[in-house]
Design a protein around this nucleic acid. Structure first.
Lengths: 334, 334
DNA sequence: TTGTAAGCGTTATCAA
DNA sequence: TTGATAACGCTTACAA
């Protein structure tokens, strides 16, 4: 391992001088020696020791990504949305000269460890963290960026999308295409999360247009019997013709169930998804969906992180990104 | 921040004693003091400083995952296969008490930095690294685990699957179902990688059965004109009836192109994929594919890593995991 | 069983 | 413009 000291000896200077050069404080060092030292460092293959740096400067160029992991069996990164976002985030963070660690966290202890162990410069939270937010905020002075959080705690920095608007847009579009009998399929709408807001936007828009959706048309996507439910919904005397679902992944499950039930999309059943993951355009038929810009989201998160790291006094802010309808082939006009 | 020293002062012992307790070297410390110290540490919310540890012990509990990133526009983690594997790997590594960093790497400089900067205990390589392997190996003593590498360098530790066998299995299955005129769709078969081996297994099996596949039936999945190609292939006097493709994601693109071309799957065209990502069973029709066990792969990588970390003298080994045919609905009998 | 001393590679601070 | 020194929090090696 090549250290500052090694280079210093080669160059006949003190290691402080080398340190200054390596940190780009070139105005404190003469041009000549700076050049010479750079060359020697290059030749010797010097790579700064980040641990030592972090220790001495009490600040690391490290960001932690925290994935909430309620359950051993869940696989957050198997979800196309999450993994795309994480991948983009990693790229952006790296571009800023920071390194990224990933932690699955279950409870406060895990979170605490993730934040303190490597004294990370900041953290990004993916998933639900409502219970712990208050305590986390209190215990830490580093920037914490939440994503898609609807915590009632004010003054947290969050980047999310307009889920409510997304629900509305979906409803509008289905109505515009003549659908009147609708259903909603998603994970059991937990408390105050994105799912609930999408559902609310959807329902409110329907109600404003004089349409109501009976509670039994709100279906838990976790059900084993999706096919059967679809049959019941679409075969009655007053058949459901349109479904709004909370993710494109979920939409693909609906496609499969509909297929098994002998229901054609969009002929017998129209479906509108959420997210616009890469695969959606390749479904048969291509999925009409509410698109969120994952790249943009990662970008905003990263910029916010950098801003807060550079200046501790930046106030908390809640960024809400827009969504847009991506019209493809899974909704028909009736 | 709570340090060993803080705890030591509270407990009226030296920080060495606390250090021993925190590292579970309880046989070197009296039961009584050990208990007392544990309690105090708990109360004070002690979290060990990993940077300091790494610095003092010249060894970190950190693993680096290196994603090869030839191109700004590519998004390795948008690929379902990669992201699932990465997610599983992260979980396994964490379970072993290690932390995981992610790095996109372009060239030798990047790799070098990733490995040295945090003196990681080991690294896992995802993607192609053929050019640099020799140099990387020479410069590092830490365990390096490659995945899906067909490097000609001997004595690297690699975890892969039996790609050749996968190709054979696909061919056998198509033949068994009466298909004689076949095509292959995948990324331009770069040098010596997984793609080439899958293709070779496929072709060899065909040849052994007296069937030949003309070169123009090997199609680059990167083409813009997939729909048109499919038309040409399947509408001629001697139409292609079966396609083997190198990933399930690619299969979904073929589904979409076939749909646009008015070709029904499996009625007009049978398709067999590779990977068995989560989405495959939800395609319409559900995709018949060559399955690889991603969880198992991550598990093997992690165990290998631990073994090599604990014992530097373990020889390099190349683990080849099996693949299996997952029969679903995209291949028809003719 | 416990403690002392030195040192890991770097940066902050102050002095020259 | 440069250097000496202490310190960051911890572990290793040795001594008591």
């Amino acid at each position: 391992m090549v250290t500052l000291k090694d280079i210093a000896e080669q160059a006949g200077v003190s290691s402080m001088t080398v340190s200054r050069v390596m940190n780009g404080k070139t105005k404190d060092v003469s041009q000549k020696t700076a050049q010479r030292i750079k060359k020697i460092a290059e030749e010797m293959g010097y790579v700064p020791n980040s641990s030592a740096r972090a220790l001495a400067s009490r600040a690391s160029r490290l960001i932690a990504a925290l994935l909430s992991d309620y359950d051993e069996e869940s696989a957050p990164l198997e979800d196309s949305y999450n993994s795309s976002f994480f991948g983009e985030l990693a790229r952006q963070i790296q571009k800023e000269g920071y390194d990224l660690m990933i932690h699955y966290v279950k409870d406060y202890t895990d979170i605490n460890y993730s934040l303190k162990s490597w004294n990370v410069a900041g953290a990004v939270f993916l998933g639900m963290f409502d219970e712990n937010i208050k305590k986390i905020q209190k215990d830490n002075t580093i920037p914490l960026i939440f994503t898609d959080s609807y915590s009632s705690i004010r003054s947290i920095t969050n980047v999310g999308i307009d889920d409510y608007q997304g629900g509305e847009t979906a409803a509008e579009y289905l109505l515009k295409n003549g659908h009147r009998n609708l259903a909603f399929i998603g994970p059991a709408a937990v408390g105050n999360g994105v799912i609930m807001h999408r559902l609310q936007g959807f329902c409110t828009c329907l109600r404003d247009n004089g349409i109501s959706m009976p509670p039994e048309h709100i279906i838990d996507s976790g059900t084993e019997h999706l096919e059967q439910m679809l049959e019941e919904l679409c075969r009655g005397s007053d058949p459901v013709t349109g479904i709004f679902t909370t993710s494109d992944f979920c939409a693909s499950r609906i496609y499969a169930a509909a297929y098994q039930a002998g229901l054609g999309i969009p002929d017998d059943l129209s479906v509108i998804g959420f997210d616009d993951i890469r695969m959606s355009r390749y479904l048969t038929p291509p999925l009409t969906t509410i698109r969120q810009d994952i790249k943009k989201k990662a970008d905003v998160v990263c910029q916010l992180l950098m801003k807060h790291i550079k200046n501790q006094d930046v106030p908390a802010e809640n960024v809400v990104l827009g969504v847009e309808l991506k019209e493809r082939g899974s909704v028909r006009k009736i």
